[in-house]
C-alpha cells in the first residue's frame, strides 16, 4: 500500500483526532492564561497568605509531572467527590500545569517593567489596579510574549498526554491506526508532521503577529 493510499484511507481519522487536539489546545490555553495571570499577580502580592497560596500552587504543579497530575485529576479526584469527564479532565490538567509555568512568566514580565514606570504611575495618583492594568501589564505583556510562544508549544505537546486517559485526540487516533494497520512509520510519522505543522504554521506565526500588534500599540515599531 502506498503512503498516498494510506493517507486516503486513514485521513478522516487523522482529521478527527487533529480537531480534538485543536479543541483541547484552545481550552487548555484559555485556562492556562487565566491561571497564569491570577497566580502571577498573587505571587507579587504583599499579603503572605495570597502570596503563599500562589507559591504552593506553582511549586506543586511545576514540581511534579503533567502525567502524574492528569492521572491524579482523572483517577483520584473522584474519590474526593469531584468526578471530571475524561475530556474535561484532559484540558483542565494541561491548563493547570502550563498555567503554573505561565505564572512565573507573568511575574517575571511584571518585574521587568522599569521602576520608573511604577513611580510615574504612582505620581499620577493612579489606583493600584489602574496602575497594573493601564501602565504595567501592557508593557509586561510585550516582554513576556516570546516566552509565551514557547509555552504554548509546550501546551500543544502536553495535550498529547490526554490520549492516555482515552480522549480521542490525534495521539489517540495514531495509536489506534497503528494498532490496526501496523504501519508505524507512516502512522506516527504523519501524526508528528501534523503536530509540527500545527506549531509551526499556526501557533508560532500567531504569536509573532500578536507581538507585532503589541509593538504597534506601544509605539515601538521602527
Amino acid at each position: 500500500m502506498s503512503y498516498w493510499e494510506f493517507l486516503v484511507e486513514q485521513g478522516p481519522r487523522f482529521v478527527d483526532g487533529a480537531l480534538i487536539t485543536a479543541v483541547q489546545f484552545a481550552l487548555a490555553a484559555v485556562l492556562a492564561i487565566a491561571i497564569a495571570l491570577l497566580a502571577g499577580l498573587m505571587k507579587l502580592s504583599s499579603n503572605p497568605l495570597i502570596k503563599g497560596s500562589a507559591v504552593i500552587y506553582i511549586e506543586l504543579f511545576r514540581g511534579t509531572s503533567l502525567l502524574v497530575q492528569l492521572y491524579w485529576i482523572f483517577f483520584v479526584l473522584p474519590l474526593f467527590g469531584l468526578t471530571l469527564e475524561k475530556f474535561t479532565a484532559g484540558f483542565v490538567a494541561v491548563g493547570m500545569n502550563l498555567g503554573a509555568y505561565g505564572a512565573e512568566l507573568v511575574r517575571g514580565g511584571i518585574q521587568s517593567v522599569p521602576r520608573g514606570q511604577w513611580e510615574a504611575a504612582y505620581s499620577l495618583s493612579m489606583s493600584p489596579a489602574k496602575r497594573m492594568w493601564r501602565i504595567i501589564l501592557p508593557q509586561a505583556l510585550l516582554n513576556m510574549l516570546p516566552p509565551w510562544g514557547n509555552l504554548l508549544i509546550e501546551l500543544l505537546k502536553g495535550t498529547a498526554l490526554v490520549s492516555l486517559i482515552s480522549v480521542a485526540d490525534l495521539m489517540f487516533e495514531a495509536k489506534q491506526i497503528n494498532g490496526s494497520t501496523y504501519l508505524s512509520a507512516q502512522t506516527f510519522g504523519t501524526a508528528l508532521i501534523i503536530y509540527y505543522l500545527f506549531a509551526r504554521v499556526l501557533v508560532t506565526p500567531f504569536m509573532r503577529w500578536l507581538e507585532q500588534v503589541m509593538l504597534r500599540k506601544l509605539g515601538r515599531t521602527e
Binding site: 492516555l164 497503528n178 506549531a199
Partner: peptide, 22 residues
C-alpha cells in the same frame, strides 16, 4: 525545531514501533 515542537510521548512511540518495522 521539529523535535521541540512535537510531543515527546509520540516520539517515544515512533522510536519504539518503527524500529521493528525496519
Amino acid at each position: 525545531e521539529f523535535i521541540r515542537s512535537t510531543p515527546l510521548v509520540l516520539q517515544i512511540f515512533f522510536v519504539f514501533f518503527v524500529g521493528p518495522q525496519i
